[in-house]
Amino acid sequence: MPGVADRPGREPGEFELIARYFLRRDEGEATGLVLGPGDDCALLSPSPGQHLAVSVDTSVVDVHFPATAPAWAVGHRALAVALSDLAAMGARARWCTMALAIPRMDEAWIAAFSDGFHALCQDSGVALVGGDVTRGQLSISVTVQGEVPPDKALRRSGGQAGDLLAVTGTLGGGLGGLKAWQAGERDLEHDLLKAYLLPRPRLAAGLALRDLAHCAIDVSDGLLADLGHLCRASGVGAELELEQLPLAVGLEAALGLDAAQRAALTGGDDYELLFSLPASAVDTARQRLAASGDTLIVIGRLSESPGIVGVGDERVAGWQHFPGGSS
């Protein structure tokens, strides 16, 4: 007997789409999920003694990803950038909800999108517990929820003068990958393109930095912009060592050293963790991060003097949707 999708001339409705592509029973069995999708709300039971960390992120076509990007990569990316905020708090990811707006019915695209989204759910231990599908400009809003012990959350406000500044992974790959896409590169095994379209949320790194890092943020708007957020929240300044910036693989070859360093400073979309910690904790942190395949590179220190020094005449701000405003 033919299924709903096989009936000529009939498009599935919103609830059929949700049931077909976004309800996964294996994810619905996650511990702490009392009632999953199918009712008006999901019912969740956080672990005793934990604070709930919640963040939301919206990805819009041709703003955050190209319209012609592979659908499964769009699904991965939409969840990854939201999970990155949990990583920066040192939270363990638990659940997410997702609202998808699509301009027209395209089941092949939706199926591939859901595959990419669910694959990262599985890799990250996250359950999709609700959401919505509607017609409109292609955009995806993902709300993530995680848990963190009350005294373990990594905040932006804990930095101390004298702390070393460090990052996980490499920088500049987000902008480098965007430029590669704009130049016609389509191989998602290309290092820069992978960094841009398939970022890896540093969830394990965030957990490893608990008790060691004094403050943390994820590098989404650019290193300088996000370091500025840390400095303002902590009431400190920063001294950067430009030559220590870990540049993404292939970035210098693609752009040249000066442009590669600028991409690392201001490009954004890297989703690495930027954090401060005392010098005495660096070796322990590096060992913990290595256990999950993450790296730690010291790029400077926090100081008592306000402002960020060590980047020459660099005055280009990081990414802002509304450049005239403040963030």
Rank of each mutant, 00 (worst) to 15 (best):
K152M: 15
R200H: 12
V63K: 11
S139Y: 05
D218T: 10
S276M: 14
R202L: 11
P37E: 04
G75K: 07
G32Y: 05
A127M: 02
A183L: 00
S84M: 03
A111T: 06
L240R: 03
L83K: 11
D123I: 04
S139F: 05
A205L: 12
Q287A: 15
V129A: 07
F15N: 05
S292V: 09
V63Y: 04
S59F: 03
D270V: 13
T58I: 13
E107G: 15
A204S: 12
T68V: 07
P66D: 00
L164M: 07
L274W: 05
L43M: 03
G13V: 07
V56H: 09
L245Y: 01
C121P: 14
G250E: 00
A119N: 06
G75F: 04
G228M: 10
G172S: 10
G177S: 09
C215K: 10
I308W: 02
L120F: 11
L197T: 08
A264D: 00
V219W: 05
V129M: 06
A204W: 01
D294R: 15
V56W: 08
S139G: 08
R20T: 15
L212Y: 07
F65Q: 03
V167R: 12
A213F: 06
A69Y: 00
A253K: 13
L247T: 05
R24L: 09
E29W: 05
A99Q: 14
D187I: 12
F65V: 06
A111C: 06
P278V: 00
A183T: 01
G174L: 15
A281Y: 01
L154W: 03
L203I: 13
E16Y: 12
D221E: 09
L223W: 04
R232I: 10
A317H: 10
L212F: 10
R94T: 00
L100D: 07
R155N: 02
L100K: 13
V311M: 01
A80E: 00
A285D: 00
V148M: 06
R7I: 15
L274D: 02
V4R: 15
M89A: 15
G173W: 07
Q244T: 13
E304W: 01
R7H: 11
T266F: 13
L209N: 11
G268I: 01
L209C: 09
L207S: 08
F113E: 02
H321C: 14
A317E: 10
L17H: 12
A205Y: 11
P150A: 14
G32M: 02
A19E: 07
Q182G: 02
L154V: 08
H321W: 15
A291D: 09
R92L: 01
G325R: 14
W95F: 15
A111R: 07
L242S: 12
A260F: 06
R25I: 05
A264G: 00
L247C: 04
L274Q: 03
D62W: 01
V311L: 00
P2H: 02
M1F: 10
T170R: 12
L242W: 02
G159H: 11
A204R: 13
G28V: 01
G38H: 08
G158W: 00
H229N: 12
R7W: 11
